[in-house]
């Protein structure tokens, strides 16, 4: 009698973590990719106006926020390892540090928005700022959601949940490394 045949692992089995989180990651990449493409297309209609508007942005603050976010991503990835090794206290400590950096990101972003408001710059000031507020604001909303999600998975003793929360956090990272150069750097 032959041994029962085992199903060969499918393509979806190769994907790390929850499939639904990957569906979300692809959706977010499409949404932000379309938003950034629309931003660059609008820039074609008024390159000088976009350059003048971009000069009001604080590049150093945004660069600092990039370092903050990628460091937070590293801490979340290390938390997944700790969860898989059953080191709950270490996992919680790493997730708390990742969340703290997420809050630092939001504070820097808040300072940036307050500075713009102080200069009388709003969404209606120029098309550049309409996209700037929409894209960075939508991203900041994801950062808030990510901090909440990391807090939730920190209290769960489930490595799979930690992996899923961290994947969302890395998606926030991924979007930022594309958004930052397009909005702040390209002249």
């Amino acid at each position: 009698m032959s041994a029962p045949q085992q199903d060969a692992p499918g393509l979806l089995d190769e994907l790390p973590g929850e499939v639904m989180m990957w569906v979300l990651i692809v959706s977010e990449l499409l949404v932000f990719g379309a938003g950034l493409a629309a931003f660059m297309a609008m820039r074609l209609t008024d390159p000088a106006g976009f350059a003048e508007a971009q000069a009001h942005l604080h590049r150093a603050g945004a660069a600092l926020n990039t370092v903050v976010l990628v460091t937070s991503g590293l801490l979340a990835a290390l938390a997944v390892r700790a969860a898989e090794a059953g080191r709950e206290a270490r996992k919680r400590g790493l997730l708390a540090a990742a969340m703290a950096l997420g809050v630092v990101f939001l504070i820097v972003k808040g300072v940036e928005y307050a500075d713009k408001a102080g200069q009388g710059i709003g969404m209606e000031t120029h098309t550049f700022f309409t996209f700037y507020y929409l894209l960075t604001g939508f991203h900041a909303a994801h950062v808030i959601a990510g901090v909440v999600l990391l807090a939730l998975v920190a209290v769960l003793r489930d490595p799979r949940a930690t992996e899923t929360g961290a994947a969302f956090w890395h998606m926030v990272d991924l979007v930022w490394v594309l958004l930052f150069p397009v909005i702040y750097l390209i002249r």
Partner: peptide, 16 residues
Amino acid sequence: LAMALVKARLILHHYL
């Protein structure tokens, strides 16, 4: 943008 692409790949390959 080339540097942004490298960063995105690093996040996809190693973080995710």
